[in-house]
Computed example of a mutant assay.
Amino acid sequence: MANSMKSNNAAIVAIQQMLQERILAEPALAIKLANPNKSLENAINYLCHEIQKSGVCVVDDQTVLSILLHFYDEDSIEDGGTPINCNIVVSKPELTEEDKDELKEQAMEQYKQEQLRELRRQSAPKVQPKPTTTAPKAGAEINVQPNLFDF
């Protein structure tokens, strides 16, 4: 489980934060989370097993929190057995209107810069290659045919 959890550090941090926020709302939960027979690794393993049993691939925060709290509530629940090799992906929160406006401004500025570069490229004088005369190679015979009308 330790190897698969390294790739899910963002998910582990998000789960810990979710549980900490819940502890702030419900301080008695801290006692359940401090149970020496239960660990965060076991809770995450249980979570993965429960999601796998349900047959879904995506669950929301509330479902995750419910499964984790159920794991910590019940003393008889085991972690689900062998660790599941899975990836847990954390969705990003919705953007605020200020964030959206800022991203829109950045995109507009980037677009303006790209358009300016394109205009400059198009209006730049085109470099004409210098005409070169080809001289016969050294040692090569010049193929000249006599002409009766040349004087």
Rank of each mutant, 00 (worst) to 15 (best):
D75T: 02
S54C: 09
I44C: 01
L24W: 01
E41T: 05
G80P: 09
C86W: 00
V59T: 14
P83F: 06
I44Y: 00
I31M: 03
L47E: 04
I84N: 02
V13C: 14
Q20I: 01
P83R: 09
L68E: 15
S76M: 11
I44N: 04
Q20S: 10
D79L: 13
N8P: 06
I44A: 00
E50T: 14
H70N: 12
I12G: 06
V59A: 02
T63P: 11
A10D: 07
A34I: 03
S76C: 08
I77R: 09
E78P: 12
L19A: 12
V58D: 04
E41S: 10
V58P: 04
I84E: 02
L68C: 15
N35F: 04
N8T: 03
G55M: 11
L65V: 10
A25M: 03
Q17R: 15
L47I: 10
S54A: 13
L68Q: 15
L69H: 01
K53L: 14
N35Y: 08
Y46E: 00
A28T: 11
Y72M: 07
S76A: 13
G55V: 05
N85A: 05
I31H: 04
I88Q: 03
K38G: 15
S7V: 15
G55E: 04
T82W: 02
L24P: 00
L19D: 11
V64S: 03
D61R: 11
F71N: 01
A25D: 05
S7N: 11
I51P: 06
D73H: 13
D73L: 05
S7D: 10
P27Y: 02
A30G: 02
A14H: 09
L65K: 14
L69M: 10
I67W: 13
K53M: 14
D75Q: 11
I84R: 14
D60I: 12
G81M: 12
V89K: 12
I31K: 04
I88A: 04
S39N: 14
L65D: 00
I84L: 10
R22W: 08
G55S: 08
S66H: 01
I23A: 07
N87C: 07
I15C: 00
D79E: 13
E41G: 09
I15V: 00
T63R: 15
G80M: 07
